[in-house]
């Protein structure tokens, strides 16, 4: 079961926060196919947000084919977003760790690395180098010393 954390002042609408947090859970494997999402009642009792917002977020997830309502039972996960490549022990992650270590050795601090990542992601995704649902682990995406492991 997932527990949503709603940040009122984040500027992101509560509905989007639920969608994003659900997807994040699907990516990380916290939620897996067949798992039940909390009922709207459970979500709102804990977060004190509008129930219609929860329903709206669940409908959005349903439209994307990630979850499905089963009348009288609840809403269940249909499909996972977890990618074995991105798993904690996957080679992509290992490559990224290696690259970050290298950047630190080169004298970059946390903010420098983060800014570099963001700018590269912006550039690569805006220019349509990969498809919108494509893998973030595209070869060379993170620069010359990047995690250049062309995983499956």
């Amino acid at each position: 079961m997932i527990e949503y954390r709603i940040e009122r002042r984040s500027g992101v609408s509560t509905y989007q926060q639920i969608v994003q947090q659900t997807k994040q859970a699907l990516r990380l494997g916290v939620l897996q196919p067949g798992d039940k999402l909390p009922t709207a009642r459970e979500v709102v009792e804990q977060t004190a947000i509008n129930p219609n917002t929860v329903l709206k977020a669940y409908r959005e997830l349903e439209r994307e084919g990630l979850v499905e309502p089963r009348p009288g039972l609840g809403t269940f996960v249909r499909r996972s977003l977890a990618r074995p490549e991105a798993a904690a022990d996957g080679p992509l992650r290992a490559g990224l760790v290696e690259w970050v270590d290298e950047a630190r050795t080169a004298g970059l601090d946390r903010e420098d690395i983060s800014a570099l990542m963001t700018s590269v992601l912006e550039q690569r995704f805006r220019t349509g180098v990969t498809g919108s649902t494509g893998s973030a682990g595209d070869t060379g995406a993170a620069g010359s010393t990047g995690p250049a492991d062309p995983a499956a």
């Binding site: 009922t39 709207a40 329903l55 009348p71 039972l73 609840g74 809403t75």
Partner: peptide, 11 residues
């Protein structure tokens, strides 16, 4: 109640 998040338990 018939929304996707129908609570069966608490009702």
């Amino acid at each position: 109640l018939s929304g996707p998040a129908t609570p069966s338990g608490p009702a």
